[in-house]
Design a protein around this nucleic acid. Structure first.
Lengths: 238, 238
DNA sequence: CAGTGGTCTAGACCACCGA
DNA sequence: CGGTGGTCTAGACCACTGG
């Protein structure tokens, strides 16, 4: 019998092996990797296993694959870094902190031009409007200014937003199918400053989020965070 | 012969089918999906195919899977939205616009306490320091304030940053293995305001990025963007 | 314990690319 | 055209979960 490679080389090991050759510079950016069938020889496993490993490395942005051509070490952009914007309640709870919600206003309103456009409704349509402040251990970290489409969440106004976040309520009503988010820096106006307990003219991180459910806009939210108390954090690693 | 299902149901169709039942509310959040082996019966295909389809749906955040238990419609968080922070040159080029870089300063410096800590170097170590402004069609959209570890990019200072971005140069030298990013809102000080051609006290979006290569910090950058001229945009769809 | 998802094998055919 | 990745089959054993 010839000597055999270690009895098992699961796709984890294949990934680790390739990852290392990239990380230590052995395989330079742009360089072509061995073909799947060659790697099958090297690792002594089925092609599906190699394929699976390469597919995951592609998902992670480490390599690029082109059908009919081959697999290549990614040229730039292993720094395709990712920032997740999370639900405020989960985020606070995960830090083991106390989440308290302060309700500023809850109202039925006629949509103005701007709100109507964002929600794809006619101007003057009835919309729900809530304004809340979320506190983490007593410190204001988010001002939530949200408009909701009554058609998609009829029972919305009856809920107690000191107990459950609007996001949760919306999700119960309508499974969402689409979302857009925009992150910007803005200056706090007097009212926002008062709500968040920061000086007027402070820098705020504004996350504008629009959610779509079954083709209709379910909700449009503007989430304001004090620049000094809130950060979006992303981490990436090979 | 009994009637047969349509001759081929690739994993795309399995995904589409499940996706729709979730989107139209037929399968509610938290509900248990049929097991892989049951779906094999329903779709008349191999288990690998079903498995692959479910795996992708999990990647997209639509379902959750627990070994030994089953697959479930995700409870919240199809809105685990994702923001990518991209290379400024690519971003501008992709919009078909002109990218011009203005070099404010290029210098060897002794690291102060703060920079030294961020780069895991001793205070007083020599570091490279560049300050650039990136213009899109003549409008300033990013002030790049970057420190670089000389050990990982010895030829850095010789480069012409009006022709190639520091990110590119760094990537040539050392394949990066790790990165952190933090996004905050800050107020423009006088110098930043001048560089970006905005009023002092304007809101800026600050992206702080630290990249690690082979265990050492390669570079620390602070990227300032006028709040009114720059946005991070994310889109998600079922 | 039976049932679940996780992984792997050893084939196969296809669509695509480049010379 | 030959070589590439993309996908699929029909099995198999494993690790984990829950009652």
């Amino acid at each position: 019998m010839t000597t055999r490679a270690p009895r098992r080389l699961p796709s984890k090991d294949i990934k680790a092996s390739i990852r290392q050759r990239i990380a230590d510079g052995g395989w330079q950016p742009g360089m072509k990797l061995p073909s799947e069938r060659e790697l099958v020889q090297q690792f002594g496993c089925a092609r599906m296993t190699v394929h699976h490993a390469l597919r995951e490395l592609e998902d992670e942005g480490l390599i690029e694959r082109r059908q009919g051509s081959g697999s290549y070490v990614a040229r730039l952009h292993p720094i395709s870094n990712v920032l997740r914007v999370r639900d405020i309640h989960e985020e606070i709870a995960e830090r083991g902190h106390l989440h308290v919600t302060r309700v500023l206003s809850v109202a039925r309103e006629k949509a103005g031009a701007e709100v109507a456009a964002a929600m794809r409704l006619r101007k003057g349509s009835t919309v729900f409007h809530v304004r809340l402040v979320h506190l983490e251990n007593g410190v204001a970290i988010q001002l939530e200014d949200r408009h909701v489409n009554p058609a998609l969440a009829p029972g919305f106004m009856a809920r107690d937003f000191t107990q459950v976040t609007p996001s949760h309520v919306l999700f119960e009503h309508a499974p969402l199918t689409e979302a857009e988010q925009v992150v910007e820096a803005v200056l706090a106006d007097a009212e926002q400053a008062r709500a968040l307990e920061v000086p007027a003219g402070s820098a705020l991180l504004r996350v504008s989020r629009r959610t779509v459910s079954q083709g209709a806009v379910a909700s449009v939210a503007r989430l304001y965070h004090p620049g000094t108390r809130y950060r979006l954090i992303g981490h990436f690693s090979v």
